[in-house]
Each structure stands twice: as C-alpha cells, then as structure tokens.
C-alpha cells in the first residue's frame, strides 16, 4: 500500500483491531446493528468464517456461512463497518486452507470442521 494511503487507513486501525483475532474455520457470532426507521436493534449471525479478504486494509471483509433450516446462508461483513457491534469467537477450527469454499458442496457430517485444541505450555 502506498505510504499516503496509510494516512487514511491509520484512522480506522482501532475499528479493525477491536475484534478478537479470528480466521477461516472459526465459529463466530456476529452482532450487527440494524436500523428500521428510527429504531435500532441488534441482530446476531452465527456461523463459520469461510474467508477473510483484503486483510489490514479498509476494504477488509469476512464471510460467515451458516446452514439455516437446510439452506446455506452466507453473509459478508466489512470489518470497519460501524454496524458491527461485536464479534464473539466461539470455537477455533482446524483447517488447512484460507478459503473454505469446499464447505458449500457439503452437508451434515462432511461439512464438519475439527476443533483446534490449544495446548498450554
């Protein structure tokens, strides 16, 4: 990235780093602010992170996939979005690639991701 662009993106550094460090394969619960007319409420979207794009830029997004009553639903969130209230990291997954598009073709047990067990030293 150009040095000058960093001047702009530096301002959003806090917005990017206020969330826990998650990556693809992890299960997260995303709290999104939704405005309906003048009212504001929080909606939760829980699922597996299948990719993070354009990391460490203002354009960074992540995709969360869940299976809702048999239908796969994916939602893309910009990470600096003011609508993002909170991201809870529920479970860390053990995966071997950065983009988990292979999950789209799988159902049930085949779509399961092993949990990453962290051993304390």
């Amino acid at each position: 990235m150009s040095e000058l662009l960093k001047v702009v993106e530096e301002e959003y550094k806090d917005a990017r780093s206020k969330f826990p460090n998650f990556k693809s394969g992890d299960t997260v619960n995303v709290h999104v602010k939704i405005t309906e007319g003048s009212k504001e409420r929080i909606q939760q979207f829980q699922g597996t992170v299948i990719q993070r794009k354009n990391i460490n830029t203002n354009g960074e997004t992540f995709t969360v996939r869940k299976v809702s009553s048999g239908i796969g639903v994916e939602r893309i969130f910009p990470i600096v979005s003011p609508a993002l209230e909170k991201i809870e990291l529920l479970r860390e997954g053990k995966v071997r690639r950065a983009r988990l598009f292979y999950l789209r073709g799988r159902q049930g047990k085949a779509a399961k991701i092993k949990e990453r067990v962290r051993v304390k030293k």
Partner: peptide, 12 residues
Amino acid sequence: MTSIFSADGRNV
C-alpha cells in the same frame, strides 16, 4: 483508492 464509512453508515 480506499474506502471509508460515512456518517450514515454507508461504505464510500
């Protein structure tokens, strides 16, 4: 180019 969020929550 980059993008920022405006006051009304739009990505510009």
